[in-house]
Design a protein around this nucleic acid. Structure first.
Length: 119
DNA sequence: ATCTTGACCTCTA
DNA sequence: CTAGAGGCCAAGA
């Protein structure tokens, strides 16, 4: 075994796919945070990697607009097709905003673990 | 190979 | 409340 290893090291490309899988499970009208996803995947402080994964998922049909930071702030809006599509989509799904770039995280917070307990 | 930046989080002062 | 520092892992120059 040394040919088909494809160096799937201690989490790298798999981490991305795992993030995309979680984000794809986020129901409409709900939002989650980078830290929650990272923690769910076993990387507590690797919230930045989640951002990198989403950055590579732009245009992949993934609801990346449902991922916000711990403050509920749309930090990644500038990485979308347009810096306004994120807020537009969230509002369109019924997500309430407490500020211009801040969503009501307390009202729409969703966690990956919640999906496991349900399913 | 090193250094810097990045869609972050948490702790401490 | 704000500011600074440490940690996490990856990509670009």
């Amino acid at each position: 075994m040394a040919d088909t290893q494809t160096e799937t090291g201690p989490g790298s490309a798999d981490f991305y796919e795992r993030v995309w899988d979680v984000v794809a499970e986020i129901p409409a009208g709900r939002v989650t945070t980078y830290g929650d996803i990272a923690e769910y995947l076993g990387r507590r402080g690797a919230a930045r990697m989640v951002g990198w994964a989403l950055n590579a998922a732009v245009g992949s049909g993934l609801p990346c607009h449902r991922v916000v930071n711990r403050n509920g702030r749309l930090t990644g809006k500038r990485h979308f097709e347009t810096p306004t599509v994120m807020e537009e989509r969230l509002r369109s799904e019924g997500v309430a905003f407490v500020d211009d770039d801040r969503v009501a995280l307390d009202e729409h917070r969703w966690k990956p673990l919640e999906a496991l307990e349900r399913g």
